[in-house]
């Protein structure tokens, strides 16, 4: 339909403009080509698997961020491949596509507040900071937390509040939050975190073993305070096809 075509064109134009603007500001660290290719791959996957694609601002943030700074030195050559990578201490940096989808699901913008449980390498926190979000992040593994804090400060993300310790109780002093991301696996959603989520706020939890994010859980706190969860699969795999629909 013409209207749909028009909307699609606008969306593409927005993506293109965002990418161009990102190109202009990205530091020339010799990795911009790889970064651009990674973002193109992520955008292509999003077209395949997500009805609305991914917000152009999120893609632009990925395009600006030096992901190779967030992975161990021996893996830098693989930093812009669209796959998860080990970052030591039994932790991983998620697949760029999954990072993009999770960030997109949070629907955050400049001035919003976000809490992240499980800092890891600090990449996800930096993506949110790139969107103008005021980020607080907690990591349980002490050496990982120290390395991430130092890295974030060195890369100019000193505004991100970091803390070593137990994420179960959240960070009430910094809250309430517009968005919460629980990247550390849990058997249940910690009740204190739900209390620190603002009305209208969103929480995203990736579910699955390391390297294998199988579903994303999105929790929304509605105006009446009730919680709605959505269980989303990052890829389209409809178990029934043909004749069922």
């Amino acid at each position: 339909m013409p209207m749909q075509c028009w909307q699609t064109s606008c969306r593409w134009l927005a993506v293109a403009l965002a990418l161009l603007s990102a190109l202009a500001v990205a530091a020339d660290d010799g990795m911009s080509t790889e970064r651009r290719a990674m973002v193109a791959t992520v955008a292509a996957m999003a077209r395949d698997f997500r009805a609305g694609g991914i917000d152009a601002r999120v893609l632009a943030a990925l395009e600006r961020l030096p992901r190779h700074e967030f992975v161990p030195a021996p893996l830098r050559a693989s930093a812009y491949e669209n796959r998860p990578l080990p970052v030591g201490y039994g932790q991983t940096i998620s697949q760029p596509y999954i990072v993009a989808v999770m960030t997109d699901l949070l629907r955050v913008g400049a001035g919003d507040t976000a809490l992240e449980i499980g800092t890891g390498s600090g990449y996800q926190a930096a993506v949110l900071a790139e969107l103008g979000v005021k980020v607080s992040t907690i990591e349980i593994v002490e050496p990982l937390a120290r390395e991430a804090a130092e890295r974030l400060r060195r890369l100019g993300y000193g505004g991100i509040a970091t803390r070593i310790g137990d994420g179960y109780h959240g960070w009430p002093e910094q809250g309430p939050f517009d968005a919460i991301m629980v990247t550390a696996a849990a058997s249940h959603v910690p009740p204190p975190l739900l209390r620190q989520l603002k009305t209208g706020g969103r929480m995203v939890i990736p579910v699955g073993p390391p390297f294998q994010t199988q579903q994303l859980m999105l929790v929304e706190k509605r105006a009446d305070g009730t919680l709605l969860t959505r269980q989303l699969m990052p890829v389209v795999f409809v178990p029934l096809t043909g004749g069922h629909d």
Partner: peptide, 18 residues
């Protein structure tokens, strides 16, 4: 002791306490 382990699979999001 510092960061207690907590295991409560299937806990409702409406549960007040863990």
């Amino acid at each position: 002791p510092l960061v207690p382990l907590r295991h409560a699979p299937g806990l409702s999001l409406n549960a007040g306490d863990g």
